[in-house]
Each structure stands twice: as C-alpha cells, then as structure tokens.
Design a protein around this nucleic acid. Structure first.
Lengths: 225, 225
DNA sequence: TGCCTCAGTCGCCGT
DNA sequence: ACGGCGATTGAGGCA
C-alpha cells in the first residue's frame, strides 16, 4: 500500500529523529518494510522501518513498531492526497551483471591477466585474518594473496592484505617462500599508494571490469547471444 | 511525480541490471533523483538514479539519463495504475539525534568520562594512517588515540587503532612516551576483544550514548526542555 | 572537485 | 544468531 500525503514523522530506536511537515510518499510493503520518501531530493528515504514491522492505526496517523529491534516510526498525516492498494503485486526478478562477484569470476578464470605465470590455487581462501579473494602461486611458486576491489583500493585493503601475508609468514607450510600481495582494482586511493611504497612484496595492478575477457558478453541482457 | 504501474526496467551504468515485469512505485523527485520500489519486500529500491538525472519519454515508457555519470535507466510501463503530481511539494527538516557526530561531540566535551586525567588535544587528528577521532594526553602525558564507534568495536577498528599507535611510535615527537589506544563503543565484538588481549597499550571502554551527559536533553524532541 | 568516512546504513552469504 | 563484507552503496564534510 502507498499513501501520498502531507505528514510529519517521528522515529525512535537506534537514534531519535523527527521529520517536519512534508509532502511524502509512504510505502508499506508486503513484508512489513516501510519507506517514507520526500518528493524533494535524494535517493534515500527520509524515514524507514525494516521488514517484519507491525502497523497500527493511531489518532491522526499510523504507527509502525518493530518490537524485537525496539524501533518505532509514527507518521502523523495532516492531509491525504491519494492511497493506492495493489493487491496481488507482481514481482519480477532482478538480474545484476558486473558486480564484484562477476569481477572475481572473470579474473579467477584468467589470473595470468594479473601477472604472467600466476596460477589459481583457491578462491576465498580462509586465513585467520579473513578470506583471501584469490589465492595463487606466482611463477616462482610464491604464495600470492590477491585482493579484489571493484571500485578502488583503500588503505584498509592494503593493511588487510598485509595481515594475510603476516599469517602466511607464520605458517610452516610456507617457510622458505616469499608471500606476496597484489591489490587489483580500477583505481588506487592515494593514501593506499603511499602505504604500498615501502612494501616490497606488495603491489597494485590496475584492471577495469570492462577490460576483462567476457565482460558482459555472456550477459542475459546481450542483444546478440 | 510518482507513477504506480506494472513495468520492467533496465539499468546500464556502473553495472547492467534488468528488472522483470513487476508492480512498482516510480518516484521522480524534484532534483532529478529517481527511485523505483517494488511493493514486495525490503527497504531498498530495486532500481534508482542519482540526482540531476534527465527524463525523456520513450515509446512504451520513460528513460532517465545521467550523462556525466554515464548511467541510464529505462522503465517500460505496461500498465499505469495511477499518477500523482504534487506541485509545490512541502519539505520539512529532518532532525537526527544520537548519530556518531553527536556521540563524538558529547565525548569530546568530557573525555575524562573515558579515563580520569585524560585531556583532549585534537579532534579528527590527521595521520598518514588515517584520522584519529579524539587525540588526547593521558594522566602521564602519553599520547592516546581514541577511536569511537556508535554501535560496536570490530576487528577492523582494533587494527586501525594499532596503525595509529604504530605511526606515533615512529614519530620523533613522541619518542620516550608510550602511545596508547582506547576503543570506545557500547559493545565489543568477540574477535575484536581477543585481538585486544595481547595489546598491552590498548583497551576498550564501554560507553553508551544514553549515558552521556546531555544526551538527547538539548533535543528538539525532548518533552521537558 | 575530489577524497574520506559515516550510515538508524541494507542485504547476502557464511559459520 | 553472529560475523564479515559488498553496494549501481548514498550522503556529508573538509581539503
């Protein structure tokens, strides 16, 4: 159900928030999620409630309550412009192509793209410091942790990769080798670059999703399959 | 303007996405932002476009294009249920109380709450390892990095704090001192706690927003000011 | 404008 | 349930 109205709203839960009188669209979804959008600006809603919220009618408006999470949203409706109920709402699938998952798939299938002689050992290789996106051997047989970022490599990612190397260095299995780290992304944050400078066994390789073999061609959206 | 309809949508830009035929609410905001919500589930929209998107009418639907960002959203409308235009849409202010900004403000004004004898030197103190939320001197004059988290301290936060200390130890200015780190939050993640155990100069202090002097009392929402 | 960090982040997938 | 992390993240602040 959606209600177009002039209303004010008050949220109490993880914070306290109050929305002054506004023209809004209030969307109450089938699963109990609630979204309140202003017509003014921005992609994000002004207020919302998570799934499984219960609705009650209160004097002057509606009250949404999520007991388990201790959150409440009250919407005081001054004037209602329209109310639309779409009963058996149809819901098609949403297919997404090009997110990091696929970026990883394509790179995993062609790790030599990252460096000549590289060979994939494991995907999401578990270490005490967290999962390594692509765990490889380089040409010389050195264990190599490859960290992928769809957008850019941040300082955090550099340190995370350093932690991977630190753990490999501790492991008996890799004694006598030189653990390496390679950060792969379309761009590199400045501070991350500085941090990489004095890491002899770590490097950055710039790869854009579009440059990968097969990018968006196996796509369900492709016009000529 | 909002359009309630049965439609399919196709987004091309940062990724490719296609939404199958669904009953949706299409919201076109005054600033050119576009949001397309299913009625089914979830707080997030199925598709959207950022502010400053331009709209065109195309056969069978609408096309939204953001040239500078190279993004396009096409909505093919099979059936239109309702269309609502609220011309001079009223937009009230949204006041939020209790977000990290305020948490930091309140703690900065009373750092002794964290530890007796603590004194604030700088807020958002910039280091190559990142900005320190609250940079302080402790009772003994040791430089102390205080990292605030509104919800909980994670393993990442512990490492971030370690980076700060590592950096201070390198600096000539702080030779002869013992740099310390204090993580402040309402709760501590288990793995983060383990990581703290063998860090003699780092600790966790549990502080909840509600416990702070002045929390939500200067509030516009307060019933008794 | 870019860069960086928070968000009432949400949502997914794993243990 | 907790944890870890990506997201077409979005949004704000500061250099």
């Amino acid at each position: 159900m959606t209600i177009h109205c002039r209303a004010m709203a008050r949220y109490t839960g993880r914070i306290d928030a109050e929305l002054g009188l506004s023209d809004v669209v209030l969307i109450i979804k089938d699963d109990g999620a609630v979204v309140l959008h202003s017509m003014q600006a921005g992609v994000n809603p002004r207020n919302w409630m998570p799934s499984a919220t219960e609705m009650d009618v209160i004097p002057g408006g509606l009250r949404f309550h999520h007991a388990k999470r201790g959150e409440t949203l009250e919407v005081f409706i001054e004037q209602e412009y329209a109310r639309i109920e779409t009963e058996p709402s149809l819901a098609g699938d949403l297919v997404k192509l090009g997110a990091e998952r696929e970026f990883g798939d394509l790179l995993a299938a062609d790790v030599e793209r990252i460096e000549k002689g590289m060979s994939l050992i494991s995907r999401e290789y578990r270490t005490p410091a967290g999962p390594v996106d692509l765990f490889c051997h380089d040409r010389q047989g050195n264990p190599t942790c490859i960290e992928l970022k769809r957008v850019r490599v941040t300082l955090d990612a550099v340190w995370q990769c350093k932690r991977y190397l630190f753990h490999l260095q501790q492991m008996e299995e890799w004694q006598g080798t030189t653990p390496r780290g390679i950060l792969v992304a379309p761009s590199l944050q400045k501070t991350a670059g500085s941090a990489l400078v004095d890491e002899p066994h770590m490097s950055f390789v710039r790869i854009r999703y579009e440059d990968l073999e097969g990018a968006r061609t196996r796509s369900a959206l492709a016009k000529d399959p």
